[in-house]
Computed example of a mutant assay.
Amino acid sequence: MQHPTRPTAASEPPRRRAPRPARPAPLDPITLWSRLTDRDRTILRLLDAHQVLTTEQLAALAGFPTLDRAQRRLLALYCTHVLDRFRHPRPDGSMTSWRYALGPAGAAILAAMRGTEPPRPATLRTRLLRLAAHPALNHLLGVNGLFADLASYSADHPGETLAGWLGERHAARACGNLARPDGLGVWQHGQGRVVFLLEYDTGTENLGQVQAKLDGYRDLAQSGGPQLPPARAEDPADDTEPQNADRRTPGSFWVLLRFHSAARETHLRQRAQAQPALIQPTPGTARWAVATTHAELAEAHSPAGPIWLPLNTFGRRPLRALHLHH
């Protein structure tokens, strides 16, 4: 008796991937509100202030104990339309981790907390597309990543903490629009604090443009220095208007230049030798100084670590050791 032959793999039709489950419909807002945790509300404030953060960045900034816990909670917030997300293919065909932004339910909850009208869902979708397609996305993620790395470091070093963080928009206002840093940070440690203004270089500007930005910081020093964000130990990365600024110590500050490459750092430092005012800035109402690092060091160590090289020294220092004496 002749048995039917088993079809070969070549003759079998290609298997189709199982369709992804549809995103559930939004929950009733009151029901959703009752399910949000304090950490969820911190995530909403972070994304409102800093636009877009990766899974890893949110895990550090929101204080998740593990990355797995962060992934599961962020997925739940996405499924309830509190958050939205996107990702990009890498050159090797793999995908980046998810980039998260506010979703319509999350924006509505924030608006309710503030007594304002929420943006329309279509407006949020347009904003999300612009974020995903914007050529400066990697710059924004890089800036946010540096502050997230500081938050991660402080979780393992109880004596040091990111006590304040302003994103670009509020940092410019804190500087009276005399300078436009990519971020303003306050690093608190056992012996005091370091106030810093970050310039995050991606190699797209020529060094003359980078150097020209330092004129704005000199003007800022003459005006008294930046206003500082309110200290919030429970939510140090809350980017709010710098009202009731902490002026107990006249505003000494550091300008931290994180360069795209070691070569760019070296070349900028060589150019700065021709400007003595940058090596020993002229005293104004506020004292200030410049320190530099580059991507390779920043990625190998925490930005809190010994990667910062002041213009007037030859040894790199950790963030806590950047001192300005009056």
Rank of each mutant, 00 (worst) to 15 (best):
P4C: 13
T5D: 15
R6W: 12
S11E: 15
A22G: 05
A22E: 14
L27P: 04
H50K: 08
V52F: 03
L53A: 05
T55I: 00
Q57L: 05
L61N: 08
A62R: 07
F64K: 07
P65K: 14
L83W: 05
R90Q: 09
P91Y: 10
R99E: 09
Y100I: 02
A101R: 13
A108N: 03
M113I: 05
R114L: 03
R114P: 03
A122W: 13
T126Q: 15
H139V: 06
H139N: 09
G145A: 07
A155E: 14
D156C: 07
L162A: 09
L166Y: 04
A172G: 12
P181M: 07
D182I: 02
G183M: 11
L184Q: 15
L184D: 10
V195K: 01
F196E: 01
G203R: 11
N206L: 00
N206A: 06
Y217T: 00
Q222S: 13
P226A: 03
L228Q: 05
L228P: 00
P230K: 04
A231Q: 02
P242Y: 09
Q243M: 04
E265Y: 03
E265I: 10
L278V: 11
T285H: 06
R287Q: 12
I307Q: 07
W308Y: 11
L311T: 09
F314W: 11
P318R: 14
L324F: 01
